[in-house]
């Protein structure tokens, strides 16, 4: 691998400044994704700026009921936090559905949001990939596309975002706290990740030098307290999602009062199913309504056909998973 230097600043502002000064520098947190990419030659940074000393590992409750998660909080600690488990069950469940115990012990909250796609063509530096280089074409579109996007993809990229946590955060309307070269700002999680468009090299709206410092979970609505995460994958553990659903449901008198649906494994970003949510509000909490709502959402789906395996199956799979998950939240068999 290409030689690089390593810095470990004591102040967050110094970490940001270090990146601003070096366009090829990268932040290093848990390293569970970046170190793989260094070895694979997917990224070749000039410098690694270790942010483990400058990001909080605390989970604190703010006066308005917001739970603030330091960007350095390990995934395993976040999943184990009793407040998270009680108030945001989808968040805890999503983390535990991802990776392995060892990885969750190393992976940070901020880093989890910033992990790169597991598209095999992206991870293989010998195959063309627009996400690695805008000069190259997408290899996945006519390749092994079983895991790829059915919503919001572009000619240049059909990758999916791999995070489980991020899907749950979208369902609970989390806010991402960022420190950048021009100071601190807040980005709603739904606007944090982006669709590929003609620049899939950018997974998020962050600019070079922006450091995630915390993730805020707003005081939970009833539909958030009654939430869960359902992940469908090719084996029972330790695999990325074929599709996943973070869902929350509040039912009053048999009618949907509030509903949250976010989908993983279907797009370049966690996909908030706003069409389905709108279709369900005020409707009876029945299988038929759930199915009709997610079917409406998936009208926009554009599955990939490929000789090595396409992903049209994700349409019935998302449908079945959403119906099953909402049925469970409504008190039925999931």
């Amino acid at each position: 691998m290409k030689p690089f230097t390593y810095a470990r600043p004591d102040e967050a502002s110094d970490a940001v400044a270090a990146l601003v000064a070096d366009p090829d520098a990268r932040f290093l947190a848990g390293g569970t994704n970046l170190l793989d990419h260094l070895k694979l030659g997917v990224v070749e940074p000039s410098q690694l700026v270790d942010v483990n000393r400058v990001t909080s590992t605390e989970i604190t409750e703010l006066d308005d009921g917001t739970l603030r998660i330091g960007a350095g909080v390990a995934n395993s600690d976040l999943a184990a936090d009793s407040r998270v488990r009680r108030r945001y069950p989808a968040v805890a469940a999503a983390i535990l559905a991802g990776a392995s115990g060892q990885l969750r012990n190393m992976a940070s909250t901020g880093g989890n949001l910033l992990q790169r796609t597991r598209c095999p063509y992206f991870a293989d530096a010998t195959t063309p990939c627009t996400k690695r280089s805008l000069d190259e074409a997408c290899s996945a579109r006519e390749g092994w596309a079983r895991y790829h996007a059915i919503l919001g993809a572009s000619e240049s990229c059909i990758a999916t975002h791999p995070s489980d946590l991020a899907v749950a955060l979208v369902a609970v309307d989390a806010q991402v706290q960022v420190l950048g070269p021009d100071g601190a700002r807040t980005i709603p999680i739904g606007e944090f990740h982006r669709l590929p468009g003609d620049d899939p090299t950018r997974d998020t709206v962050l600019e070079h030098g922006d450091l995630v410092t915390a993730v805020d979970l707003p005081a939970p609505a009833p539909a958030v307290t009654n939430s869960t995460y359902r992940k469908v994958r090719d084996r029972a553990s330790y695999a990325f999602a074929l599709v996943s659903v973070a869902a929350g449901l509040e039912v009053r008198d048999g009618v949907v009062a509030d509903v949250r649906i976010a989908l993983g494994g279907v797009a370049h970003k966690p996909w908030r199913a706003t069409t389905a949510e709108a279709a369900l509000r005020g409707r009876p909490a029945t299988d038929e309504e759930f199915r009709a709502a997610i079917t409406a959402e998936l009208e926009a789906a554009e599955p990939v056909e490929s000789p090595l395996g396409g992903n049209a199956y994700k349409i019935p799979l998302v449908t079945g998973t959403v119906v099953s998950t909402l049925r469970g939240l409504a008190g039925g068999t999931s």
Partner: peptide, 18 residues
Amino acid sequence: VVDPRFGEVINHDLAGYH
């Protein structure tokens, strides 16, 4: 999974080969 365009097994790690 062999991708004939590249002549290689494309799921060549234990994340891709389950």
